[in-house]
């Protein structure tokens, strides 16, 4: 066994890591702190909307697992069909970056935030800002695609 070169691939271990149970005990205690905090502060967490905290937790997860990821997978399949192989990777990277930036910027661009009459809150034109970032990403993506497609194939 010691003669095996250090770079020879070995299979992933079957079964449970020996650190699983220690991790579960320590992690479980830390989680318990959080659960206790939620229970102690339940008044602040449920004051105006009883299912609010848990509802948002579950809702964010359901939307991610059942809407966001399937949508990403669908776009991935479409890119595989529509975009030729030499530039596909570059297009995927450009789309990945653009999609995440849009996701972050959406509440700002749609003006969902409440400023309460405070002009120093959300002072920018976020539609223009998002357009600017996406334009930069698109230009870089296009340049990279051009570079990749002109590179001689090996």
């Amino acid at each position: 066994m010691s003669a095996t070169p250090s770079s020879t691939p070995v299979a992933y271990p079957e079964g449970r890591s020996r650190w699983f149970w220690p991790g579960l005990v320590v992690g479980g205690m830390v989680m318990a702190v959080g659960v206790r905090g939620l229970i102690v502060n339940r008044a602040a967490l449920m004051a105006t909307n009883p299912p609010g905290w848990l509802g948002l937790w579950l809702g964010a997860n359901l939307v991610h697992d059942l809407v966001l990821v399937p949508a990403v997978l669908a776009v991935g399949l479409a890119v595989r069909r529509l975009v030729p192989a030499p530039v596909r990777a570059v297009v995927q990277a450009g789309l990945l970056c653009s999609a995440v930036v849009v996701l972050y910027a959406l509440p700002l661009v749609l003006g969902l935030g409440s400023t309460g009459g405070n002009d120093t809150i959300l002072p920018r034109d976020y539609g223009r800002g998002l357009f600017f970032v996406l334009a930069v990403v698109a230009v870089v993506t296009a340049a990279a695609a051009l570079f990749v497609s002109r590179r001689p194939r090996e």
Binding site: W19, G23, G27
Partner: peptide
């Protein structure tokens, strides 16, 4: 967020970090 953001965010962080420790062990 029809609840106290600070309380909800803070206590969720403890639960998440606990889950992270379990995950690291696993």
């Amino acid at each position: 967020m029809r609840f106290s953001f600070t309380a909800g965010h803070y206590w969720a962080a403890w639960i998440t970090m606990g889950g992270l420790l379990v995950h690291v062990g696993a």
